[in-house]
């Protein structure tokens, strides 16, 4: 089972890497999803078209998953809304202040050996681990 999850992670990561690498080779742009979302908040003429298209692709892929592999998409319906609201705020604000997320820093940035991205990824991994420790084992959100 662990081997199965590992192979799936490798295969999925390869698809993510291929998509991001193709985008780099074709356009020279970073496939950072938080940056694309920010393109909707603060559109720049030359960028907003492809950013919206990429996001639409992410959604179409998600609809495809829901049709053909629904167990890969969570049923979050019973979740605490305030948790998702607070988490979303932190993710939105933090990724803009820090200039990237798991895709922009974690894949594209590290893939270009960017010192900022290597440090940034270490920081968000560390605070992610700390957050799960506190919220799951100490206060129990």
């Amino acid at each position: 089972m662990v081997i199965n999850d590992t192979t799936m992670a490798l295969a999925g990561g390869a698809l993510i890497g291929l998509a991001a690498a193709s985008w780099l080779v074709l356009t020279g742009k970073t496939a950072g999803v938080s940056g694309m979302l920010y393109g909707i908040v603060k559109p720049e003429k030359s960028e907003s078209g492809w950013q919206a298209s990429f996001l639409l692709g992410l959604l179409i892929g998600g609809i495809g998953l829901s049709l053909f592999w629904p167990e890969r998409l969570p049923d979050l319906a019973g979740g605490k809304l305030w948790v998702f609201g607070v988490a979303g705020l932190l993710v939105g604000f933090g990724t803009r202040l820090g200039g990237g997320c798991t895709s922009g820093h974690g894949v594209c940035g590290i893939g270009r050996f960017s010192m900022r991205s290597i440090v940034g990824t270490c920081v968000f991994m560390a605070t992610g681990v700390a957050a799960v420790y506190v919220f799951k084992h100490v206060v129990g959100v």
Partner: peptide, 8 residues
């Protein structure tokens, strides 16, 4: 901050 939201 992003990491905290991600973990949450």
């Amino acid at each position: 901050l992003f990491g905290i939201g991600w973990g949450l």
